[in-house]
Design a protein around this nucleic acid. Sequence first.
DNA 1: GGTACAACTGACGCGCCGGTCAGTTGAACG
DNA 2: CGTTCAACTGACCGGCGCGTCAGTTGTACC
Lengths: 206, 206
Amino acid sequence: MATTKGEIVEQFRCQAIREAAMRVVSRKGYDHVTVQDIADEAGIAKGTVYLYFRSREDVLEKTMSISFEDFHILIGEAISRGGTFRECVEEVVKAQLDYFEQQQEFFRLYLAMAEPLGERRLRKHTSYRTHIAQLVAMVEAAAAKGEVRDDPPERIAIALASVIRDVGLQRMTEKNKRPLDADVAFVRDFICRGIAAPLTTPEENV
Amino acid sequence: MATTKGEIVEQFRCQAIREAAMRVVSRKGYDHVTVQDIADEAGIAKGTVYLYFRSREDVLEKTMSISFEDFHILIGEAISRGGTFRECVEEVVKAQLDYFEQQQEFFRLYLAMAEPLGERRLRKHTSYRTHIAQLVAMVEAAAAKGEVRDDPPERIAIALASVIRDVGLQRMTEKNKRPLDADVAFVRDFICRGIAAPLTTPEENV
DNA sequence: GGTACAACTGACGCGCCGGTCAGTTGAACG
DNA sequence: CGTTCAACTGACCGGCGCGTCAGTTGTACC
């Protein structure tokens, strides 16, 4: 038997705990989540958490990594959907803002990870670095085709991620939302007309 | 006597504690600072802290507010130095990146405040809102003169703050620094060519 | 020197949290 | 029904951090 009954149960429990952890992190923030919180949210005893994870940090670490997997795939698809750099940006922005809207819990996790302080995390988390690396690759590809200015791709990628994140955050805290498309267009134009190659002068509007 | 001897001593102590708190926050991050840390850094006993502040939160709150005062003044001056919107942005970017470089302790504090999670802080801190309000006012003034696109000033201000912050952060974590001017120019062009009014097509370079 | 008082100290109380482990539950099997 | 065993539980331990307060120190005034 490839997967025993016990292994199936283990998978199920692990997933339930991670999902609980995600919900709790989204409510209380990474630093303020206790193991008891996670256990309560999952409807199990605290000790049970330790049957499936080594420590609190282990739970949170794995929760983040796995939550980011879907996100990475999503962004990867968005990038490959776009042709020009402008289209790529539009797809990425749309994908991110939409996903943030749908998965508010994940967005909070994303914010927690993007938070620079806390020493351990300080942008060092693998998932976050992977995310940035995706954007850097996108920018480099565009740079090779002469579609973007000759600036460090890391700078551009960071700037892109920053703007998307903070616009997403602003959307979350607003009561009456702007249409998603309006913000997608805003960010796309903001980015593209900010880093468009100097040669191509008359860019389209909206 | 306007200010008694006791009041002078009190002012002095309060300031010493706040400065100590700022240094410790910059090392350990907002959430992980203990009152004992602050007391040790200030060279006093923990109990003494409570003679001048009501609680740990009170120390950190006041530390933030007062640290931001200088910052607000600095940014205000930068804005008033600039003529065109482009110049204003250049001045603000330069002022911020330079200040972040000089006052790394403050920059960490700034990052801690910009962090969205943690409920209490979540962009609600007065100092941070004032900071954004400064930028919004700058954008609105430029919009009135037709220098920027017709997008919500809040969006533009947030985007500006985001880019500056994250570029500053990237500068901090890099070992071999780019010249400050290079990053100032990068952010300025990034912003301006991204939100320049559609009419003025041929913008200058660098 | 003696007194009074403000400033300061740091050990202590208390509650919280991560992690453990002896005990309980319940399912599977004979 | 009895046995076995893995899964699960939650009381408990050690440590930590906030805030307190009885006690100490230093200073000003008599």
